[in-house]
Design a protein around this nucleic acid. Structure first.
Length: 288
DNA sequence: GTGTTTGTTATCAA
DNA sequence: CTTGATAACAAACA
């Protein structure tokens, strides 16, 4: 499940290989992927456009085009982007096929970008939640304006974080951290890890948090995200990064996916509950 | 056949 | 307005 560190990793890698490439053709194998545009219209608009910049905002990958339109890509839960140079396959992120299939395209390939230099970018998505959108500059601002602050930006100060916490005192900590309109980019894995590192139960109400705890929380959000990016994200199930390597942060996970296993601090078995409709992991002794 | 997996949005209830 | 719960989307897997 790509969250901020995974999407950041993919974005950085795509940036290395795709800048100034020109799109020769786009093949759409699943029309819903490019909704609301029709596949024909989507393809036509992209023909002969080149990519001038690549960025990430929250969990969205943004390609800037030479006509000032933008391609937005959201991988949702199982999306992957695989960049292929003939005779030199380079996997730039997402999930390998359940059946171990390597050949591309495969049955999960929803869209294909063909570039004029013969390289190819495959968008695969087993569960079809992901999307690829083509928007104008005006639409771009509209599409992104509801997103909250980037937790790794300069604007994400302690005071700003405290403000957000105070704004929603009756929410659970996890509910708040997952709210993309407040803080953009955290998902289920990193929220559980941040709560563990901070010694706070994910279902703790935010108004009960002390100044010291909020401060520690603030620092740990940044710390975990940076560390995860450094290790190219988490391969909890099947995400892979450049050259097919899994994201190494999976080896650093302390609670996510460790139900019933001993807490790495105190050996108490890790609990897993359903909180706000999400699998939620924590240590009942270390987290209060 | 059932439950679980999760990013995001919509909808309903209190 | 806030919040919580649930479903929807979709497909694989245990």
């Amino acid at each position: 499940m790509p969250e901020l560190p995974e999407v950041e990793t993919i974005t950085r890698e795509l940036k290395k290989v795709l800048i100034l490439k020109t799109i020769q053709q786009v093949k759409i194998k699943n029309s819903k992927t490019v909704h609301p545009l029709k596949p024909r219209s989507f393809s036509l608009k992209l023909q002969n456009k080149s990519i001038t910049d690549i960025k990430r905002r929250a969990k969205i990958i943004i390609f800037k085009l030479n006509n000032d339109d933008y391609i937005l890509i959201h991988l949702k839960m199982t999306g992957q982007l695989i960049y292929s140079i003939p005779n030199n396959l380079l996997i730039t992120g997402g999930h390998p096929q359940p059946d171990g299939e390597v050949n591309l395209p495969n049955k999960f390939t929803r869209l294909i970008f063909y570039f004029t230099d013969n390289s190819i970018l495959y968008f695969n998505d087993m569960r079809k939640f992901g999307w690829v959108r083509l928007v104008t500059k005006e639409d771009l601002d509209n599409s992104l304006k509801k997103l909250g602050i980037e937790p790794l930006s300069k604007e994400f100060t302690f005071n700003k974080f405290k403000e957000i916490i105070k704004k929603y005192p009756k929410r659970s900590l996890k509910k708040l951290l997952l709210d993309q309109t407040q803080i953009a980019g955290l998902g289920n894995i990193y929220v559980d890890e941040i709560c563990f590192l901070t010694g706070l139960r994910p279902d703790r109400k935010t108004y009960t948090l002390t100044e010291t705890q909020i401060k520690k929380l603030y620092q740990n959000i940044i710390k975990i995200l940076k560390l995860a990016i450094k290790h190219k994200g988490t391969s909890s199930k099947n995400y892979v990064t450049t050259s097919g390597q899994p994201g190494n942060f999976v080896h650093f996970l302390k609670v996510y996916g460790r139900e019933k296993k001993p807490c790495l601090n105190c050996q108490t078995p890790i609990k897993k509950i359903n909180h706000i409709g999400r699998g939620t992991h924590f240590c009942s002794k270390c987290q209060k």
